[in-house]
Design a protein around this nucleic acid. Structure first.
Length: 547
RNA sequence: GGGAGUGUAGCUCAGUCGGUAGAGCAGUGGCCUUUUAAGCCAUUGGUCCAGGGUUCGAGUCCCUGCGCUCCCA
């Protein structure tokens, strides 16, 4: 920075950054590199606290200074971000934070499960080796430091590293959020997640839990013999779901491609090829709106099992969701002591207490429709009247779409949100990739005139978490389903019907009877981690680009 | 798309009836070797989202636009 530009810099809104640059220079002038170096032997704050030895500390304190020999107190080396600093002249106190630690709860508030408090450092002019004390003098809140020394407890009872070395790990040039209230601005929390993560440790906990949940799901599936695979994100045809795709262009081949809206049609090709049990935890992309349960890119689990059906998938899904709930509940300290299979396991979600422990509820589409609407879904004329009365879309729409509209508006709302619920046997016309339901004699099963399909959807906490099918494996029926066009279908639904010639070819090779399911991972995270919006379980949610 | 709310210092927020822009934290300069959101003294820091209007005078009232949040579709 030249002298001529200095006045301008001081006038600029970044004068706080300028002051930090000056502190960086002061540290560099001590011969210390302000951005640190490789450091081995670090322990987390959680580990450091665990190593504190009360007896050794007592023994040391009880020994007169002149009789002291080897210091028996455990030594640790810890890295962290300076979140509080109290400069006491020749003794400087700091609190440092890492991914395991949090600020002390406000007065009167309880400590959350697994709470680990930020760690205190004492940097004494007398006891800390040069240039540690001089570094400490020039530290700003937000700087990253490495301290080592014995673990002791102060008069006030605070476990502390009485540092004998203090090293610089990185200078922070950005002014940190307010030390007590953290980063509150919702938009800034998403845009600057790197600040949110350290300033609001609850955010760190949420994403650590999400990662553990995903590991657990993979372990659960691996243990049951499912193979994790990767299928194309860039697809010439976006199939397998009803959604508007993102379009992109591939220069080398000069073709337009779509970002996948679902991996379904590729995973089924793998079943054709002879992989018996596959799953993919995939990022899908849907060019639609943003709201508290929709992000344009989102994570889902899709899974297929040869020689299974939608019942197989129900059993698996219930076990998987319960297993995830147990593990998340455990890590949040919400699992009742001595919990065993079959007992209620209630996890909070907003105002709800959702029970993942006892068997999930099973209900058919037709039953739910009739109990909510007061007449059977096969009475399509009443359905039309009812839709009209309620001001729902109905004109120019196929009967079955009117029934579906009514189901989504009226019947779904009657599902107990505190009780995970499988809704079975959707109308076949709504499920073009699903095998029609047949009885033991091979006859189509209908509700009145409406043919049913072997599909369920699972609802938890008022959200649809995922569907499952007995997969349609008859290439001729699949081909006619692709060609079938319903009147009044919207653009998104019509992508379901886009004709994938190669997929038909695959089915012609022969796909075994197969059960398949999909599960919205982000929504499952919202539920199990009690987060109100999908943006609180996605590290970098979609935001309008800044101007 | 509709409705409600909101936008003020780096951060968290006040700002009354329209009358010279405020606090806490952070920062800067001091004092302090057991502090706990340390404390004490002094102090820097503002395009009040943008544009227009009303008015002697607008952070405040009106209009338009933009951003963000929540609710509804």
């Amino acid at each position: 920075m030249t002298d001529s530009s200095a006045p301008e810099t001081i006038e600029s809104p970044h004068h706080l950054e300028q002051q930090r640059r000056e502190n960086r220079e002061a540290i560099a002038a001590l011969g210390v590199h302000p951005y640190g170096r490789r450091t081995d032997g670090l322990v987390s704050i959680q580990e450091a606290r665990g190593r504190y030895d009360e007896q050794a500390d007592q023994a040391w304190n009880d020994t007169p200074k002149e009789e002291r020999g080897e210091d028996p107190r455990p030594r640790v080396r810890v890295a962290g971000r300076v979140v509080l600093k109290r400069d006491g002249g020749r003794l400087i106190w700091m609190q440092i934070r890492d991914h395991t630690s949090s600020p002390a709860p406000k007065e009167g508030e309880p400590e959350p499960a697994g709470f680990i408090k930020d760690l205190q450092l004492a940097i004494s002019k007398r006891d800390c080796a040069a240039p540690g004390f001089d570094i400490a003098k020039h530290l700003d809140l937000g700087d990253l430091v490495i301290a080592s020394g014995p673990l002791m407890r102060t008069k006030a009872g605070e476990v502390t590293i009485w540092a004998d070395t203090l090293e610089m790990a990185a200078k922070s040039l950005a002014p940190p959020p307010e030390k007590w209230s953290g980063l509150q601005d919702v938009e800034q929390r998403y845009r600057r997640r790197y600040v949110d993560l350290y300033a609001n440790p609850e955010t760190m906990r949420t994403f650590a839990t999400r990662a553990r949940m995903l590991s657990r799901i993979r372990e659960f599936l691996r243990d049951r013999g499912y193979l994790e695979v990767d299928t194309p994100v860039l697809q010439a045809m976006a199939g397998g779901a009803a959604a508007r795709p993102f379009v992109t262009h591939m220069n080398a081949l000069d073709v337009d491609l779509f970002m996948r809206i679902a991996p379904e049609l590729y995973l089924k090709r793998l079943i054709v090829g002879g992989m018996p049990k596959v799953f993919e935890i995939s990022r899908n992309f849907r060019n639609e709106g943003l709201d508290k349960s929709h992000n344009p890119e989102f994570t889902s689990l899709e899974l297929y099992q040869a020689y299974g059906n939608y019942e197989t998938m129900r059993e698996l899904t219930e076990a998987l969701v319960r297993d995830a709930a147990v593990h998340v509940g455990e890590s949040r300290g919400l699992l009742p002591d001595g919990w065993t299979e079959g007992q209620p396991l209630r996890l909070p979600f907003n105002d709800l207490e959702i029970d993942y422990g006892t068997p999930f509820r099973l209900v058919t589409f037709a039953e739910l429709f009739e109990s909510a609407c007061g007449f059977p879904m096969s009475d399509v004329n009443r359905a039309r009247e009812e839709a009209k009365r309620r001001g729902l879309k109905h004109e120019g729409m196929d009967d079955i779409l009117v029934v579906n509209e009514l189901f989504e508006e009226v019947a779904e709302a009657t599902i107990d949100p505190e009780k995970p619920t499988f809704v079975f046997d959707y109308p076949a016309a709504l499920s073009p990739l699903t095998r029609p339901k047949i009885d033991d004699d091979g006859n189509a099963v209908c509700a009145g005139d409406i043919a049913l399909a072997e599909r369920w959807d699972i609802f938890i906490g008022g959200m649809e978490i995922g569907p499952a099918y007995t997969e349609l494996n008859d290439p001729d029926v699949q081909e006619s389903k692709f060609r079938e066009q319903l009147a009044g279908i919207d653009d998104e639904e019509s992508t379901f019907r886009s004709f994938d010639d190669d997929f038909i070819s695959a089915l012609k090779v022969g796909m075994p009877p197969t059960g398949g399911m999909g599960l919205g991972i982000d929504r499952l995270c919202m539920l199990l981690m009690n987060q109100r919006t999908i943006r609180d379980v996605i590290l970098f949610p979609m935001m309008r680009p800044e101007a």
